[in-house]
């Protein structure tokens, strides 16, 4: 219980820092590939210098999102049972979505 607060704080800031360059890169890259056909898009995503930073962005982003929503739930939901359930659902959401996103990147890399 005791180390939890600081650990959360460090992870939240750590993932934020990592994401600053990644998000900027992703937005710019996305714009320049906005006109791609599906084959072109897949070739681009499959390249290691796209897939790896994109995978990292997904991991850091979903972890950051899950932590942020956890803070929100802790702030507003006080009944222990409701809180416990929502915290669990939040983690589940991040895990499932993160898994699907990562699988998609891997699948594209393998298909191409």
């Amino acid at each position: 219980m005791s180390q939890k607060g600081t650990a959360h704080f460090i992870f939240q800031r750590g993932t934020a820092l990592v994401m600053i360059p990644l998000v900027i890169w992703f937005v710019i890259a996305l714009i320049s590939h906005a006109d791609d056909t599906r084959p072109e898009l897949m070739v681009w995503i499959a390249k290691p210098w796209t897939a790896l930073p994109l995978g990292l962005l997904i991991l850091a982003g979903f972890f950051h999102m899950r932590l942020g929503i956890e803070i929100l739930i802790d702030d507003y939901i006080h009944k222990p049972d409701t809180r416990g359930m929502l915290l669990f659902l939040n983690t589940l959401f991040a895990l499932i979505l993160g898994a699907v996103a990562l699988w998609s990147i891997i699948a594209i890399t393998l298909i191409v």
Binding site: M1, S2, Q3, K4, G5, T6, H8, F9, I71, D74, D75
Partner: peptide, 14 residues
Amino acid sequence: LDMLEDNFKLYRCH
């Protein structure tokens, strides 16, 4: 510092 380290006493500050 130990006393303040849980999720609520200090870390509700945003």
